[in-house]
């Protein structure tokens, strides 16, 4: 892999491991005293683009609650409607997306919120969703839109409204952040 970089004047690939701890080093400053633009704020442009396209051309049944989005785009609320002809027809749900500064290299934290949490074998009553693309199968080629579509299709393919079998124990013992759960993905049928 290094071979191809050799031709470019032996320049090292510009990459770094993103560490999990927030960087607590002194904020770099330019000579005139203005803070430098850090990489993470530059990566926010992608989130901004995603938001614009989701507002302009939302997929069916999906609407962004634009009032819920703060200045730094780190939390979005998205409304999702149950499709016609499915068990969730006529129901409305709300998803909360939380993005950390490693997005899109790290997945967003996605949970159902509000007073209508869908009754579904992969959705816990506290809103946590058992969906592999939200943790180990995440890819930066995915997006808010594709996550919404996956969740909509997960709901649509449901044949029986019921909670996951371990719901009671899980909601009692889980971390607030579903990404901290060690999920075991075993059921591809729904």
């Amino acid at each position: 892999m290094l071979k191809i970089f050799k031709s470019k004047k032996d320049k090292l690939p510009k990459s770094e491991i993103i560490t999990c701890e927030p960087q607590v080093t002194k904020e770099p400053r330019t000579k005139c005293g203005k803070p430098l633009v850090l990489d993470n704020t530059r990566w926010e442009r992608r989130l901004h683009k995603e938001l614009m396209s989701l507002i302009k051309e939302p997929p069916p049944g999906v609407t962004v609650d634009t009032d819920s989005i703060g200045q730094n785009l780190s939390e979005w609320k998205i409304n999702i409607a149950g499709f016609e002809g499915t068990l969730y027809e006529g129901e409305n749900f709300q998803l909360l997306f939380k993005f950390n500064n490693k997005y899109p290299f790290d997945s967003p934290e996605v949970t159902f919120i509000g007073n209508n949490i869908p009754v579904h074998p992969h959705v816990y009553s506290n809103g946590h969703i058992c969906l592999s693309i939200l943790t180990e199968d995440w890819s930066p080629a995915l997006s808010v839109q594709s996550v919404c579509l996956s969740i909509a299709s997960m709901l649509s393919s449901c044949r029986e409204k019921k909670r996951p079998p371990d719901n009671t124990l899980y909601v009692k013992t889980c971390n607030k952040n579903p990404k901290k759960t060690k999920w075991w993905y075993h059921d591809d049928s729904v």
Partner: peptide, 10 residues
């Protein structure tokens, strides 16, 4: 190149 290398390193 910088995007994919960053992803692969993670």
């Amino acid at each position: 190149m910088h995007c994919i290398v960053k992803w692969l390193n993670l």
